[in-house]
Simulated assay, not measured.
Amino acid sequence: MTYAAVVLDNDGVLTELPNRETMWRAAERTFQRFDLSAPSGEQVRALVAGNVEAIRSLCQEHRIDASTFCYEAAAAAVREQKRELRDGLRTLYDDTSTLWNLDAPLGLVSDNQHETIRFILRFFGIEERFDAVYGNPYTPEGLHRMKPDPHYLDEALDDLGTRDALYVGDSAVDVEAAANAGVDSALVVRDDDAPDCEPTHRIESLGELSALV
């Protein structure tokens, strides 16, 4: 089985996952920006996870515009992730170098903020390898389109001009998003903690994609 194009997730696939403390710090600074002192752990987790209903409820309770709150949350997350990358606390996986050997166009679709994704590609000098790039805008509307919603995966496939594609992710939600878009999936399992799902393919390294393209 071969595919005409490959679309990849970012966090956990191309780059190491953001540090938990990094995202937690960004969320806490957002709460501070709106003078919301001592947020509960549940509220911080909801913001980090992009739980749009919990965010709307919080904003209604404190009479904060949800779009403004999300804008500030996104800006804080982008700043913290850029700092993390510049400080060398997070980097590309070694096997991303094999992507240049694939004879297929590549796309990138992530739930991370679009600005962060673009920064990562420029920072590591790999932007030219991708023909379609979509991060998820951290807005109330954008959060509703987080995976497993296939919206941005569909957009990338339209840009690539084919539905004969493989979506590569590291989580069950990636596998579900691929199914919702009507394409096959490859689950990257880099350790023993594999998610409970049924992808089309299971791989341990991006180097294994050469056998599928």
Rank of each mutant, 00 (worst) to 15 (best):
L58T: 02
L17I: 12
V109D: 06
H151I: 03
F69T: 01
N112E: 14
C59N: 02
I203K: 05
L89C: 15
G161E: 08
D164W: 05
V48L: 04
L47K: 10
R63N: 15
A194M: 14
D149I: 12
A194E: 07
V168I: 08
A186D: 01
H114D: 09
E21L: 11
M23G: 15
L143I: 09
S37E: 11
A38M: 15
V168T: 00
A4M: 11
E53C: 13
T162K: 02
T98W: 02
V175H: 04
A66N: 09
F124N: 01
R163H: 01
T139L: 06
A177Y: 02
G88T: 14
L206Q: 05
Q113E: 12
W24Q: 10
R45P: 04
D65M: 09
N101P: 02
D35V: 07
N136K: 15
V109Y: 02
R86E: 03
V173W: 10
L106P: 00
A38V: 00
S67T: 14
E155W: 11
A211I: 02
A73L: 10
R83G: 04
A46G: 04
V173D: 14
S67F: 05
Y152D: 09
R45C: 03
K147M: 07
I126R: 11
V188A: 08
A5T: 02
Y3Q: 08
L143R: 07
V44H: 05
